[in-house]
Amino acid sequence: MLMTALLILPVLLILATLIHKGGSIISAEFLFSEPTNGMTAGGIFPALYGTIWLVAVALMISVPLGVAAALYLSEYAGDNWFTRIINLAIINLAGVPSIVHALFGVGAFVLFFGFGTSILAASLTLAIMTLPLIIVATKESLQAVPHAFREACWNMGATRWQTIRKVVLPNAVSGILTGVILEVSRTTGETAPIMFTGAAFFLPFLPESVFDQTMALSLHLYVVATQVPNVPDELPYGVALVLIAIVLLMNSLSIAFRMWLRGRKKW
């Protein structure tokens, strides 16, 4: 009980501080207008907009890839040295610091593939970074589906794919989605992987395609907090508050969603 309280306390403190110091600046105006006066005033719209883009494109890449990889590993591939090496690699990849992913992103996507610093390069970097976690979450929820269901299907002559589509996936989808939502919240806050690959310090216009650069909330926070002189105190706190709110919202959404699906699932 005490430990739980100790865990919650920092979260509450952070939130309270942010609301106290930055709450006053939050308004529709703040969310939907552009930074002005050398980023010392105005809103955060381009950064918010950019973050949504970055995360959305990253998900479009990492979710299909990750789910497909997990399906292969858990439903098709047997247990042999090859899959064991792959599994080991996935676990290790999950432990790689994000700055290393950033450097990889610069090398691979910005330079080698020639995407330049762009949303595409940054999202690809984010996708690579979240891929192992999506694979692990998906594999776990696939393996939580009792084996007896698969055998029952096979025995009736269902192919592996029919089994997956009709029985395994519908029962694993809650776990997969929870994993994905958690990933969204993590990706939203990442700064390192995007700052060299596609996120810009300041841009006077919104991105129009995935080949443009963009501003992003996490980087914007870093910039207004440390790089720009004469920023009013409440501005960085306001940005942080928006960022934290998105993360918390996503997390609660995923928890609520999980509980809802748990309640419906009976076997």
Binding site: E151, A152, N155
Partner: peptide
């Protein structure tokens, strides 16, 4: 498999 039906020890209806 279509010709052969199997019943298991533990009933295993699909969800």
């Amino acid at each position: 498999r279509k010709q052969i039906g199997m019943v298991f020890q533990r009933p295993n209806p699909l969800p």
